[in-house]
Computed example of a mutant assay.
Amino acid sequence: MSTKAERTSAYIIETVAPIFNKLGYVGTSMSDLTEATGLTKGALYGNFENKDSLAMAAFEYNSKKLLSKIDEVLDTDGNCLQKMFVLTNFYRHYDTFVKELGGCPILNVGVDANHNNSQLLAATRETIKNIEGKIALVLENGLNNNEIRLPVTPLQFAKQLYTMIQGAVAMATITADRKYLLNTIAYLDQLIIREIKK
């Protein structure tokens, strides 16, 4: 059973994670955090050393939610192609999934941290590698099971696929137009059929 301090820390992280993700590291003030949590600055710093450690915990919280969802998506029954289509379908509705997170943690934190927080940037890059690795593993298994063909290595294909997905996420976010996401995912489905289907 968790202690009161652990429950308080969990509450703080869960509450501030979407705020940091939406407003960014620099854009999030202590008053934003105290107002959202209903706690004093002293109470926040009683649970977290400083704003850096709180921002990192918030990113890790959102990142873990995203990675768990991707695991769930890729662990579905079926062959490699079926898993790839479950993945693209998840990204077709990605904006709905990340709404409670305050937006895409990869896009929001990655861009915001690029010039402001090297630790958050490193954590975002690690999450990107993690996602690409998960996709590459599905492709590698598909290749080993003779289910697909690949024009490049599994990791290279995974990186290109993820780059196109994140580009679509960025454009849909910036323009507030889901068509960027929907049209890119429709294109990726065709690309998967054309490039890797046996």
Rank of each mutant, 00 (worst) to 15 (best):
M56Y: 11
V169G: 00
D75P: 11
L121K: 13
T37C: 01
G24Y: 11
D77A: 07
T34L: 06
E132N: 05
I70E: 05
D71I: 14
S29E: 10
V26S: 13
K83N: 09
G46I: 08
L181N: 12
G42Q: 10
S29D: 08
D95C: 13
A176Q: 09
G38E: 04
E14Y: 08
T124E: 13
L182S: 03
A43V: 12
C80L: 01
T173H: 03
K159R: 07
A176C: 07
R178N: 10
L107Q: 00
A57W: 03
N50V: 06
A113C: 05
I174N: 05
I174G: 02
F20I: 12
N183I: 12
N130A: 05
K134V: 12
N183K: 12
A113D: 06
L188N: 03
N145Y: 11
A113V: 09
Q160F: 03
L44Y: 10
G133Y: 03
N114T: 12
Q160N: 10
H93G: 07
D32F: 06
D52M: 13
G24K: 11
K197P: 10
D32K: 03
K41P: 04
N47H: 08
Q160H: 03
N21D: 04
L54I: 12
D71H: 13
A123L: 09
A5T: 15
P151S: 01
I193A: 07
P151K: 02
K51Y: 11
K134N: 01
K22Y: 13
F157P: 01
I106K: 02
K198D: 10
A55C: 12
I106R: 11
A170N: 00
T40D: 02
D177Y: 00
D189G: 03
D95W: 14
K179F: 13
A5N: 13
T34R: 01
L23C: 08
L67D: 10
I70K: 04
Q82Y: 15
N146C: 05
P154S: 09
L23Q: 03
G78W: 15
T3R: 07
L74V: 15
V169T: 00
L81K: 10
M171I: 00
E72V: 12
V98S: 02
L188T: 11
E140S: 07
P105E: 06
Q156P: 00
L87I: 04
L143I: 05
T37F: 14
G24I: 11
T184W: 09
T3W: 13
S2M: 15
F85D: 10
Y25S: 05
P151G: 03
P105G: 09
K129C: 11
L66Y: 09
M30C: 04
A158R: 03
